[in-house]
């Protein structure tokens, strides 16, 4: 996927630039962008490290486990009978880690959950579909990467987007879940 985006876009831009006589301009724009990307990367690294540090305090305090325990009855209801009992724990852990923005912890848990839900079937079951859609629609309490980028860009209020972002991600998740429930009924 990425190699098509990268190759296709770069190729198209260079061909188009040459055809319209702006080939040199396109290349120098690319080189400028490469230089600027390093600056952004460094600015991002500082803010990112700060948030990861703070989130790690939350993780060490056992917040993920407690939040998970609070969520698991609701999740059991949401997923219904299709969820194998042994998958409930990784599903809960994955969604809590996502909520807290612990991406590094969320992915291995998600993979484990998906593996336990797959069970050698040919087609994905309702529970697996729902789990994938919830993950793809993203549920995060505080979008730390975005706040870090906004800080790097010199925003007067980098965290001002926190509440609208929570609302938007809630809408996307609810729509995803409702679509799943409708698709399940249709079969």
């Amino acid at each position: 996927m990425l190699q098509w985006i990268f190759g296709g876009m770069a190729g198209l831009a260079l061909v188009w630039g040459m055809a319209t006589g702006a080939g040199g301009q396109t290349v120098s724009a690319m080189l400028n962008a490469a230089e600027e990307a390093v600056g952004t990367g460094i600015a991002l690294a500082g803010a990112y490290a700060f948030f990861c540090g703070m989130l790690n305090i939350l993780r060490r305090a056992g917040t993920a486990e407690r939040l998970g325990a609070a969520l698991s009855p609701a999740l059991r209801r949401l997923f219904g009978d299709g969820l194998p009992a042994e998958a409930l724990e990784p599903v809960t852990m994955n969604l809590t880690a996502n909520l807290l923005g612990l991406g590094n912890a969320a992915t291995p848990m998600g993979i484990e959950a998906a593996r336990r839900m797959g069970q050698g079937a040919d087609a994905a079951g309702n529970a697996l579909c729902l789990f994938l859609v919830i993950n793809a629609s993203s549920v995060q309490l505080l979008p730390t990467t975005v706040i870090a980028l906004r800080t790097a860009a010199g925003s007067a209020n980098p965290a001002g987007i926190a509440l609208p972002a929570l609302a938007a991600t809630a809408v996307s998740t609810v729509v995803g879940v409702l679509c799943c429930k409708c698709a399940e009924k249709r079969r």
């Binding site: 087609a123 994905a124 793809a136 996307s172 995803g176 698709a183 399940e184």
Partner: peptide, 21 residues
């Protein structure tokens, strides 16, 4: 990771969520 071949309604529902978001 799940080892399934048919994703059924997953992608359309995920894209609906993306559009709504």
């Amino acid at each position: 990771a799940a080892g399934v071949k048919k994703s059924r309604h997953t992608i359309p529902c995920a894209l609906a969520a993306w559009l709504a978001g």
